[in-house]
Design a protein around this nucleic acid. Structure first.
Lengths: 100, 100
DNA sequence: TTATATATATCGGACATCCAATATAATTTG
DNA sequence: CAAATTATATTGGATGTCCGATATATATAA
C-alpha cells in the first residue's frame, strides 16, 4: 500500500499517464519531464524509470521524437492525444471528488 | 503501462487510497465499497482484492470495524482520517491540472 | 586533447498489486 | 431443516512497475 506511505516515491502506476499529460502542455525532453515530475511528487524519477517509460510510449505510437544536439524532444502524436483524452476521462471518473 | 490500456481493470496502485476516500464519505461494508468502486472505474473488484485491502488498512490502524449480522461495517479512525488528508495532498499536487 | 558534465539507453531484479480459486460463516428461502 | 444466497476471508501466483547499476553519446571546459 505504497500510496499511503509518506516515504513512498513511485508513481503508483500512473507514470505513463502523467508523462502524456505533461507533454500535452508542451513538448519536452527527458530531463525536463523528470524535473517536472520531481516538482509534482517530490522526487526525481531515475533514468532507469523515465527513459523506458518514454520508449514504451513511443512504441505505442503516442510520442514522436525530435533530436537536437544532446537532447531528444518528445511531443504527443495525434494517437497520443487521443489516448490521453480517454485516460483522462477514466481518471476523472475514478477519482471524482478526491481533488477538491 | 496498464493505465493507458482501455482493457485495464486494476486500480493502478491507488486502491487503498480510494477505499479511505470512500469511507470518509460514509461508513460502509465490503460489498458496498466494491459496488462504489465498480461505479467509478467500471469493474467490480474481486473478493480477493477488496478484503485483503480492507485488512491492510485495518492493520495500519486506519479503519475500525463494526459487525452486524452478515456484514462488517468499516469506518475511518482518526489515524485513518489523518492518513487520508496527507495522501490527498500528495495526490492533488501530483495530479494538479489533470482533472479540469 | 583530455576531463568533466549532461542526456539518453538498457537490463536484471526487488517489490507490490491484484486476481482466481477456494473456503468459511451468516442469513434467507423453500 | 436443507438449500441457496450473500458476505467475508485467505493464499498462491502472474504480472507490471520502478529502480540501481551500468553503458554510450554528445557537448562543454580546462
Amino acid at each position: 500500500m505504497r500510496e499511503l506511505d509518506n516515504e513512498c516515491c513511485d508513481m503508483r502506476g500512473l507514470l505513463g499517464f502523467l508523462v502524456l499529460f505533461l507533454l500535452s502542455k508542451k513538448p519536452m525532453h527527458g530531463q525536463e519531464i523528470a524535473n517536472e515530475l520531481a516538482k509534482r511528487r517530490g522526487e526525481k524519477p531515475s533514468p532507469g524509470t523515465i527513459y523506458p517509460a518514454l520508449k514504451s510510449l513511443k512504441d505505442l505510437g503516442f510520442l514522436s521524437e525530435e533530436k537536437g544536439g544532446k537532447t531528444i524532444t518528445y511531443k504527443l502524436t495525434p494517437k497520443g492525444e487521443k489516448a490521453l483524452e480517454i485516460a483522462k476521462k477514466r481518471f476523472t471518473r475514478t477519482f471524482l471528488g478526491v481533488i477538491t
